[in-house]
Design a protein around this nucleic acid. Sequence first.
DNA 1: GTTTATGCAAACTGTTTGCATTGCT
DNA 2: AGCAATGCAAACAGTTTGCATAAAC
Lengths: 157, 157
Amino acid sequence: MKSRQEPLLRGKLKGYGYRITQGREAIMNVLADAKEHLSAEDIYIKVYASYPAIGLTSVYRTLEVLVSTGLVYKFDFGDGRARYEIAEGRRGEAHHHHLVCTGCGRVIDYADFINEELALLKKTEAGLSKKYNFTIINHLIQFYGFCSKCKTNKNAK
Amino acid sequence: MKSRQEPLLRGKLKGYGYRITQGREAIMNVLADAKEHLSAEDIYIKVYASYPAIGLTSVYRTLEVLVSTGLVYKFDFGDGRARYEIAEGRRGEAHHHHLVCTGCGRVIDYADFINEELALLKKTEAGLSKKYNFTIINHLIQFYGFCSKCKTNKNAK
DNA sequence: GTTTATGCAAACTGTTTGCATTGCT
DNA sequence: AGCAATGCAAACAGTTTGCATAAAC
């Protein structure tokens, strides 16, 4: 079921002067196919299935490269474990932001109001960039609260 | 120079049914007086100065309580160490968001466009809240990029 | 007096690093 | 051939936890 046309990241990474290794290729494929936000270990496990020679260290090092080039986003949802997500999905899937449940840790992607948000962000970025002489590469918008399940059973403290 | 009127958080914390201990009081005072975003260890050190009986563990535990009640915000700027900031400053200081330099880790608070941002956020929150049946408690907006110093010397990779 | 909070030390967890080896190009 | 990337094991850092003691209420 996994259609794998021209690998998305492969060419870009190469363009930055990095070598394409089996491990990196496998990691990029996992990221390209991922529907959810994956932790480094999630990625390691998925890659391991098709390429058992992989090491967790390489996953971290490759992710660092991908994040630093802006090809992959790194998120922190507050559970002490970073999550990674490809910047541009297979078909340039809609940009989205996150709703993070502090009760159970569930993360909901939303794209509602995203156009308005992006319009304002663009304007804000331009202003901030000028005022603070700051080159903006990326942004992060997250809402925290309680999801439908957790709002009912707020017994747990 | 530290004016300490009616402690801000004290009453609120008590209202939640928590006991007011010397350690907690000292922590809350440090947070109330803080101008910057403090890490748990920063707080520990500052509290230690006036109350050497404090333990780092208690700092963590108190912060957890304060964050869970919404009295204090917890941020992650990507350096693997959480930062804490009082939700409402001494005089209800202006709400702000962050500009995070991925080069040197510097964090700039900005309040520009904040009204427009807040207006949109409010609207977005209302929509999301309804659509996903999600109770929104807090939000996080951060821009990542390179500050004036780091954009010139991007030698370091 | 009862219960919550504390400090200490040890445990834990995710991530990073040193180094000799492998494998792209 | 030459240098970047890898894996392994060990180091690391921030945070959490168990437990007996102390302090709020």
